[in-house]
Computed example of a mutant assay.
Amino acid sequence: MRKVSLATKNPMEGTLGTTWEGPYEIIGILRSGTYRLRDANGKTLDHPWNVEHLKYYFK
């Protein structure tokens, strides 16, 4: 799961909007704590994400 940041948050949802989105699959490790992600549709996200903004999700 990826944390929703101010840049990706829908302003119409307000404070009760979702705080996590996903699930995402880790497809690459760039360095320790930095990951490249792919969504459920197979689309790779544009930039890598730090582990501080990710949460484990088990199906």
Rank of each mutant, 00 (worst) to 15 (best):
50 N>P: 03
51 V>C: 10
41 N>V: 02
27 I>N: 10
45 L>M: 09
42 G>C: 01
9 K>A: 13
42 G>P: 02
43 K>E: 15
40 A>V: 09
54 L>Y: 04
11 P>Q: 06
51 V>M: 08
1 M>C: 14
57 Y>M: 05
6 L>D: 12
47 H>W: 12
1 M>S: 15
27 I>P: 06
21 E>C: 08
47 H>F: 14
21 E>S: 08
8 T>G: 00
17 G>R: 02
4 V>Y: 00
47 H>A: 15
59 K>A: 14
53 H>A: 11
23 P>K: 07
58 F>E: 11
21 E>T: 08
37 L>T: 05
11 P>M: 08
42 G>I: 01
12 M>L: 11
26 I>Q: 07
54 L>E: 05
52 E>R: 14
22 G>N: 04
54 L>T: 04
55 K>L: 13
6 L>E: 12
23 P>V: 07
24 Y>I: 01
42 G>Q: 01
2 R>S: 04
58 F>W: 08
55 K>R: 15
56 Y>V: 07
15 T>C: 00
10 N>P: 00
34 T>E: 13
5 S>C: 00
17 G>P: 01
5 S>M: 02
30 L>N: 15
35 Y>V: 04
2 R>N: 07
32 S>N: 14
48 P>L: 10
43 K>P: 01
16 L>T: 11
51 V>L: 09
5 S>D: 01
12 M>P: 00
12 M>F: 04
50 N>D: 14
12 M>S: 06
30 L>E: 15
54 L>I: 05
51 V>W: 01
35 Y>C: 04
58 F>M: 05
13 E>I: 06
39 D>S: 03
30 L>P: 02
52 E>F: 09
49 W>C: 05
13 E>M: 11
56 Y>R: 08
38 R>M: 15
39 D>W: 08
19 T>N: 10
20 W>E: 10
3 K>V: 10
11 P>C: 03
1 M>Q: 15
7 A>G: 04
25 E>K: 09
59 K>T: 11
49 W>E: 09
22 G>I: 06
7 A>I: 07
3 K>G: 01
21 E>H: 01
22 G>Y: 04
51 V>G: 01
33 G>M: 09
29 I>R: 10
56 Y>T: 06
13 E>A: 14
41 N>W: 06
55 K>T: 10
34 T>L: 15
8 T>L: 02
25 E>I: 05
44 T>D: 15
23 P>H: 07
6 L>T: 02
10 N>E: 03
44 T>Y: 10
